Computed example of a mutant assay.
Amino acid sequence: MQLFATFENNAFLEMVISTLEKKGIKKENIFAVPLDNREEDRKIFDTIHRSDGTSLIDIGMGLATAFSVIGASIGFKLAWGPIYWGLIGASVGFILGLTIRLIMELFIKKKKRVLKGKHSEIILIVDCEETQAEIIEDILWNHFAIGVGKVR
């Protein structure tokens, strides 16, 4: 039987390996495989299949509202009237907000995208007898495995 477990690269991995060796599992039956975690460049525009949870139009909508109110208020004294100046103010505010957000995303937040929360860095594979499987699974969970799977 084989047990598969994923771990972060920390001291608990070393502790689980030494605990397994103390329980009678030979070194030849314990395999640790490091993973290459995905790092990708930050994408600005969302698609149907992927969204990063950040909005590009939030600042634009706020500024569009503020500028349209100001434009409509001032428009009572100007030649085109409050409706046109409110629409002009909304357009200018939205474009200004969208520009600010794009500059923030492109130049200020240049960080690489990493997975949020815990991510697996090592897969631990343990070959054992079926009678030892429950004990080994408990050892893996007690040493903070991210996930555990069994194959008979």
Rank of each mutant, 00 (worst) to 15 (best):
I83N: 12
Q132N: 14
V114E: 09
G117K: 05
D52W: 12
F144D: 13
E134V: 11
F107V: 13
P34N: 13
I123E: 03
L115W: 04
E105F: 05
L124D: 02
E137K: 12
I125M: 13
I95L: 15
I146T: 03
G86L: 05
F31P: 02
K112P: 03
S55L: 08
F67A: 15
L35G: 09
A90N: 05
E130V: 08
I125H: 01
R113E: 12
I44R: 11
K23M: 12
K22V: 06
N10H: 04
S18V: 02
I74V: 12
V151S: 05
W80L: 12
T47E: 07
G71A: 03
D58Q: 10
I17W: 07
R50T: 13
Q132Y: 05
T65M: 14
D127E: 10
G71E: 02
S120H: 06
E39D: 05
T54H: 12
D127F: 10
K43W: 06
A90D: 01
I103G: 00
G149F: 11
F4C: 01
E8Q: 15
G147V: 01
I88W: 08
I103M: 11
V92Y: 03
I108C: 07
S51K: 15
F67G: 01
V126W: 06
L102V: 14
H49A: 14
G62M: 11
K112T: 08
I30N: 09
E121S: 03
F4A: 02
E39W: 07
N10G: 10
G147F: 09
V151F: 06
S55E: 10
F7G: 03
K118W: 03
D36W: 03
S68T: 02
I136C: 04
Q132D: 12
S120N: 02
R101N: 13
A145F: 09
V126I: 14
S91I: 00
F4V: 01
M61T: 11
L56D: 01
V114M: 08
F107N: 12
I30A: 12
E14S: 13
Y84G: 10
E134W: 01
D52E: 15
G89M: 10
V151M: 08
L115M: 14
I88Q: 06
M1L: 07
G24T: 08
